[in-house]
Design a protein around this nucleic acid. Sequence first.
DNA 1: TTCTTTATTAGAATTATTCTAAAGTACTTG
DNA 2: CAAGTACTTTAGAATAATTCTAATAAAGAA
Lengths: 156, 156
Amino acid sequence: MSSPSAFIGPSKTAVAGLTPARERALIQRLRAANLRTTQPRIQLAHLLFGQGDRHLTAENLFSEAKAAGLTVSLATVYNALNQFLEAGLLREVIVDSGRSYFDTNLTNHFHFYVDGTGELIDVPPQSITITEMPKTPDGFRVSGVDVVLRLEPKSK
Amino acid sequence: MSSPSAFIGPSKTAVAGLTPARERALIQRLRAANLRTTQPRIQLAHLLFGQGDRHLTAENLFSEAKAAGLTVSLATVYNALNQFLEAGLLREVIVDSGRSYFDTNLTNHFHFYVDGTGELIDVPPQSITITEMPKTPDGFRVSGVDVVLRLEPKSK
DNA sequence: TTCTTTATTAGAATTATTCTAAAGTACTTG
DNA sequence: CAAGTACTTTAGAATAATTCTAATAAAGAA
């Protein structure tokens, strides 16, 4: 009896939602960023970029990958995240000394950060307006403006 | 032959600049914060609060302490910093995932952060004005507003 | 003083991340 | 499209910052 599978894609390991079309799109994206298109990168990129704006740590992504049936190592997750970061496909959010968050939202925006749970929530840029920026010290340029609004549960 | 020392203070180990008057002031400060007045705390507080606004890591303070001839352990430095933090004598600045900075400036202000060197520079609050704060998610209150301006050497 | 509580400490443990070096895979070039 | 070269992946060791442990010491109360 022949396999009832509707199609046989190019991936060795099937990953939910990673259709051939989606895979081609991701390959283009990696190529455009000058990254070799390896299976781990394609699959991790799919998890990262396949569900809207996301904030996640390396451990988060590693867990997701395992849950999705991938067999990538933690080191590869770190490598991929750092390469994507350097390539401008991701942005880092620094809200906790001790843990790095990666953000797939590349547009200008800020964050709410819930201490305790570690949850990050985007704040659209229009909702915060910074006027009167201080003068930048000589010899430097401002490479980023981070605004973090720390949240605590309201004590009733 | 008697010692030519001008005075003999209450400290076992002399620390530069820690006069009896200064020690009394620090003791008051610790008491007011509900902290027992131990030698390590007094000496670390002297290093921390004796030279204007400072930004430093636990390792920074530990090195300073050793250089000053103190014999505190690294664990004590961490303990003291965390207790001072909790007591409101210090504030934490989060600009680097991987390392905590402590800030003796308790007034409202923001920071420049030099990536690479790890240097922190205060930005007075008047020089940044945030208008139109976003609405806080239900059940939470904003416990802090952190603004970090990241600096890179200007590429000539 | 003496007692009780809280601090200090050395070193082990933990957590997040990076490194190492060996084996595998992608891209290039002829 | 075969071979070579360069880049990736990986398991596990290594590192860095910080916290924990449990034993000793010092502080404040009675």
